[in-house]
Design a protein around this nucleic acid. Sequence first.
DNA 1: AAAAACGATGTAAACGCTTGCATGAATTAA
DNA 2: TTAATTCATGCAAGCGTTTACATCGTTTTT
Lengths: 338, 338
Amino acid sequence: MNRTTAPTLHDVARMAGVSTATVSRCFNLPDRVSAKTRETVMRAVEELGYTPHFGGRALASNRSNTMGAVIPTMENAIFARGLQAFQETLGEAGITLVAASSGYDPAHELEQIRTLVGRGIDGLLLIGAARPDETYAFLERRRIPYVMAWSYQAGHAGCFVGFDNRRAAMIITRKVIELGHRHIAMIAGITNNNDRASDRVDGVRAAMDEAGLTGRDLRVVEARYSLNSGRRACLELLETKPHPTAIICGNDVLAVGAITKAKELGLRVPGDLSVTGFDDIELARAVEPKLTTMHVPHRRMGQAAARALLAIRDGATDCPGTLLKTQLIMRGSLAAPA
Amino acid sequence: MNRTTAPTLHDVARMAGVSTATVSRCFNLPDRVSAKTRETVMRAVEELGYTPHFGGRALASNRSNTMGAVIPTMENAIFARGLQAFQETLGEAGITLVAASSGYDPAHELEQIRTLVGRGIDGLLLIGAARPDETYAFLERRRIPYVMAWSYQAGHAGCFVGFDNRRAAMIITRKVIELGHRHIAMIAGITNNNDRASDRVDGVRAAMDEAGLTGRDLRVVEARYSLNSGRRACLELLETKPHPTAIICGNDVLAVGAITKAKELGLRVPGDLSVTGFDDIELARAVEPKLTTMHVPHRRMGQAAARALLAIRDGATDCPGTLLKTQLIMRGSLAAPA
DNA sequence: AAAAACGATGTAAACGCTTGCATGAATTAA
DNA sequence: TTAATTCATGCAAGCGTTTACATCGTTTTT
């Protein structure tokens, strides 16, 4: 036995005393092989420590059993969690994940997509819908099945597995207004090239309109995804008069940053200032007061995305997209104004 | 993915009026081809929209330009952050990342490693050193270069890119003792199959010994990686007399859980109870009081791991491992006992 | 001017696997 | 008993690339 090179189908076949075809079938169509033979083969597989060679497999079957994902960054807990679930679900189906990150840059995203496609993926997970036509054109030309997560744009072509960011933001804003707040401010994520962030701003605006409050009553500051940006943005909002009595944040991290800053400035939360988040990550329950936020089912989204991609692979013709529900979670950081 | 229409090397060769070998060389050894020919070939490549087929390439060259990573879970911020940096550094070198997760289960880790190896990776990132001999044997037999991150076991074979968990835990414990604490407890991560967690416990014990405190003075409770587990563990520790005056936690998440529980129970932190963390994730600065913790350079670790793997790929013979430094960050959650 | 060296290109054999088709044995139907 | 059917397995032709090795002009050396 040659110990220096990986064992091949051939080695297994020889050891088990069968043909390579039979060994191959043991892996791919187990019920086409008699139980006895299968057992012999599997014993040889064990003994040799055989693992199928990806290249050979991809070449012969025209399938890579690999799916790609390009997300903004794994450092953001919501994507990390979604990606984890995506990978787990894929793994159950024998698919491995190839991952890349775009750093929120559409040009870089396209570059990453190109690389993954060249690597031979059977499907692709993307985040949101805001990207240049060029990217969509590339995907169409190469016939790569893809799903977009975290968004759900009814008018947009393609397959979505996400939720209605705008509507969710409306719901949380309605609650804020219902409690009596009139001076409302928003700390939004960076909206450039980010439909999730901009939809949330739109949603807040829409709810204000609906309640007869004018856009002038809403001050919006954009901030990068970090506690410190949230703190800075909060400070900026509190420097001008009249103070807002409630700050609606585009995500939990910004909200927690805002809360800590507000407390540092001697404000009571929610007594003097209410703050709301969005996402419901673990952080939301670590801060005092606990964060009132919009719960997003990140894990379920990752799972659903994986299932959608698997369905397409298995021949689903129409888009097996999913519109997920979010849920308003009332905790301590939102109350009626003083 | 429709590969039946994808152009092949052959198509390019025919169009350019050369052999497939020449086309291949245009990609891999451009200076072995005359400028004129190369230009003709590249024009054909452009026109056909040709992209090399990954499977064929991997099969023929026995190289994939792909590296793998098997981490416990991406949902843990420290791994997500390290993986992100790992992927970025790899990307700069034209390598793509294939990712899988083990869920902290050694058997599952081996399974994932098998899959990735079968997929044809040129190198592998693993977390920690605690895994069965079988796994190491497999890697050796398949001659897969690998590095282990988050740990640094001097006596252990293999290449480490990590830090000394034991020593770091000693340092933070010394500080706790130095401030006057004598009744100390620890909330550790699950130590089973986790050398980072068990090294941290060892470190705490060692520092206690060093100070002449007996092991009896240290109560250790293990807890899963979640806020709630930290809360439960904290409660458990506070139910028995004498109360500890300081709780050393194996990671920040547990520490934050402990702090929130302590505050709920009406204890002042750090007045009645000091709490320390480990990792220094963003959460550590979101809680009140801010967490005294051991800073771990997760991103630098991911980068260093990528660089080590690239060095090995490029022929480095001795292990290009790295021992990273951690740093004690004093914030508000640790003070002298009342 | 002949010999040697070189450079550009082509030839063809792998690489490890899947799969349509063929084969032959075992089972069932007639 | 014979023919038809089923089932397990083997045979062998690819799949798209890379890469020794061979080939054949061209240049350099002697």
